[in-house]
């Protein structure tokens, strides 16, 4: 078991087949402990199926998976005793109140009635739900539901928490609240494994990202590694003289062999997908042509661009 000790999750050839569809098709993963790890991919990529197998809710059809050193099939109860789960759709009981939901889970996890109630009050306070504790969850807003859902996952502090699309459908304010909670979890040493179809979310939260597409793992690494692997960002140039913008655009386009966008700022131009070496040549060419540059920046590619480069199709293709 020693080989597993450094990893919160390790899978070998993990596979799940639904009828003729190989929903998860041989995924090998090693998720280090104590950080936020993101499964990134479009709808139907196999992220949720993978997560459900790791959370012992689905039995793999092939390969194996260990969570915190325990096999998800043979030692399912040992896994269940160490992880928390927040499903894609609110995994709380809508007919019950927020407080009742937390007391129910406290009781199921082994707390006495009294302790379960105390814990519920503590969590409702911590997640800013004290005012709504006595209301049925069906009356909650999306953000409140998500917070209750997260609170329910830490009635007992888990070593690892699975979050399936934790911010899907939330407004920006609620999303930021959930992001703060997720960062706090990781800060306190809980490994967080989340799925998301939002590249921004993966970029904001995850220390490492697994890009999943059509049931297979197509890339893995830190957000920075994934971005540099495609090697192309956007070259942004700001001229001293806005009147020279048309000429500068022609020069950049010629050297970079790429279309150049004119930004709202009348002195600024952006060329997405610029190769770094050619970008330096292009800057020199501008100077040589008497088109002085005020500022320039060669940005990292966005994860959207990375995803497109890795899969050959944009993230939302399968959702459409």
């Amino acid at each position: 078991m020693n080989s597993y000790s450094d990893f919160a999750v390790e899978t070998i050839g993990l596979t799940k087949v639904f009828g003729a569809t190989r929903a998860v098709d041989g995924i090998d993963l090693s998720v280090p402990s104590g950080l936020v790890y993101g499964f990134l991919g479009p709808n139907g990529a196999g992220k949720t199926t993978t997560l459900r197998m790791l959370a012992t809710l689905l039995r793999p059809d092939g390969g194996s998976a260990r969570v915190l050193g325990h096999d998800v099939v043979a030692q399912a109860d040992a896994v269940r005793a160490r992880v928390g789960l927040t499903g894609q759709f609110a995994s709380v009981d809508e007919d019950l109140t927020g407080a009742e939901n937390l007391v129910l889970l406290g009781r199921l996890l082994g707390h006495s009635s009294r302790h379960a109630r105390l814990r519920a009050v503590e969590l409702l306070d911590a997640f800013d739900l004290a005012d709504s504790a006595g209301r049925q969850v069906k009356t909650y807003s999306g953000g409140m539901r998500r917070r209750l859902d997260l609170a329910a996952s830490i009635v007992v502090t888990p070593e690892l928490i699975f979050l399936d699309e934790p911010t899907t459908g939330l407004d920006p304010h609620s999303r930021n609240q959930v992001w703060d909670i997720i960062r706090t979890l990781a800060w306190e040493g809980t490994t967080v494994l989340l799925t998301t179809q939002y590249l921004e979310e993966a970029d904001q939260l995850a220390a490492r990202i697994a890009v999943i597409d059509r049931g297979t793992l197509i890339a893995e690494g830190t957000p920075g590694e994934l971005k540099t692997s495609t090697g192309r960002g956007a070259l942004q140039v700001r001229l001293h003289n806005p009147d020279q913008r048309a000429e500068a655009a022609r020069t950049l386009s010629r050297v970079l062999e790429l279309p150049v966008h004119l930004d709202l700022d009348p002195a600024q131009l952006t060329t997405p997908g610029a190769d770094p070496e050619r970008a330096t040549l292009a800057l020199a060419e501008l100077t040589r042509a008497g088109l002085p540059v005020a500022t320039f920046a060669l940005g990292q590619p966005s994860l959207d661009e990375v995803f497109l480069a890795l899969t050959g199709h944009p993230t939302q293709e399968e959702a459409a």
């Binding site: 950080l35 082994g110 814990r119 911590a126 997640f127 830490i154 909670i181 960062r183 306190e188």
Partner: peptide, 27 residues
Amino acid sequence: MTLTPTAPAGPAPGASVRAALATGARP
């Protein structure tokens, strides 16, 4: 590691959530 979690210094949930995590021992 390239990304350290942003320190949850100011925002509301940080401190109380951390406290709740610290007291979540398993019975």
